[in-house]
Amino acid sequence: MTAKGYVIARVSVQDSDAYAHYAQLARLAMERHGARILARGGRYHELEGAARPRNVILEFDSYDAALRYWQSPEYQDARRHRLHAAEIELCVVEGVDEPVGDR
Rank of each mutant, 00 (worst) to 15 (best):
Y6F: 15
R10T: 07
R10S: 07
V11S: 05
D15Y: 13
D17I: 14
D17L: 09
D17W: 04
A18R: 06
Y22V: 07
Y22D: 01
Y22S: 02
A29R: 01
A29P: 03
M30H: 02
E31C: 05
E31K: 08
H33C: 03
G34N: 11
G34S: 12
R36F: 00
L38V: 08
L38S: 08
L38Q: 14
R40H: 15
R43G: 08
H45M: 13
E48D: 11
G49C: 10
A50Y: 05
R54M: 12
N55V: 15
N55R: 10
F60I: 00
S62D: 10
Y63E: 07
D64C: 03
D64A: 14
D64L: 07
D64Y: 03
A65R: 06
R68Q: 13
Q76P: 03
D77L: 04
D77P: 00
R79S: 09
H81Y: 03
R82M: 08
H84R: 14
A85M: 07
E87C: 06
E87P: 01
E89N: 05
E89C: 02
L90F: 06
C91Y: 05
C91A: 09
C91V: 14
D97H: 05
G101K: 09
D102Q: 11
D102H: 11
R103G: 15
R103H: 14
